[in-house]
Amino acid sequence: MNVLVALRLVPDVSGEIEITEDEKDIDREWLDLRLNEFDDYALEEAILLKERGDAKVTAIAIAGDGVERMLQSALARGADEAVKIAWEGDAPPSSRTAARLFAAGARDLSADLVLTGVLSSEETYGQLAPFVAAALDWPCVSSVNEVRVRAGVCEVVQELSGGATATIRMATPAVAGMQTASRPVRYVSGSKLREAAGRNIPTLQLSVEAADERAERLRVSLPDSSQRANLLPSDVNAAAAALRQILTEHGLWKA
């Protein structure tokens, strides 16, 4: 089974973020790019399928800053092949154009199953997995935490609210949006990463009709800070003492 894993780089917003002067975007100048966390799970699940003898894994991404290195890391993780989709635009493609590019890539590479992350932190105007599925007219299941393949039939486990799960069987070709992988993401040694760093990443030229977001972004802002927590002292021992007092007052600690 040909498994295509669609990977995306996203800004690392684990620290403090700022907004650009024109208030149209977050300020990306000092933010690193990292592999979208959920795409990372998609890659892990694909490699687990490969290790069970059920898949040939191709990692695919749309060309851009840092993408070649990300795809080389995917090879170091265990992907059989990696390709980047040519993109000449000044700005990254819209979510709908990106979906069409990945869909065209899936057709071009004869994918049986497309895995990608269920979400990225930037998807205000639509999620990639169902978008790709709609562009291909393939079935899709999102919020998946496990993929199993038996005799060309794919079974996915979908996470529902409150810890319930549903097992769903999909005839391939199909798409799944991964919420997590069935095992923790593996560690890759520095030597494997260095070895993969020299690998050539071929480029796929695909022709798709561009589509805009169908919505206009008006403004980006930071959340209202007026309802923020009462801050404890910045000295760790003073903060601990203050909290002890608060817990005592709330009847949550008896001295």
């Binding site: 709908r96 979906a99 269920v118 979400l119 998807e123 205000t124 105007y125 639509g126 999620q127 997995a129 169902p130 978008f131 599925a133 709609a134 562009a135 899709c140 299941v141 999102s142 919020s143 979908q158 996470e159 529902l160 609210s161 949006g177 977001e213 169908r214 919505a215």
Partner: peptide, 21 residues
């Protein structure tokens, strides 16, 4: 939620409608 994610994006793309998530 899991169902909403699939349906909203699937519908928006198939019916070519804007989606605000």
């Amino acid at each position: 939620d899991a169902v909403g994610l699939d349906l909203a994006s699937g519908l928006a793309m198939r019916a070519d409608r804007p989606l605000l998530s």
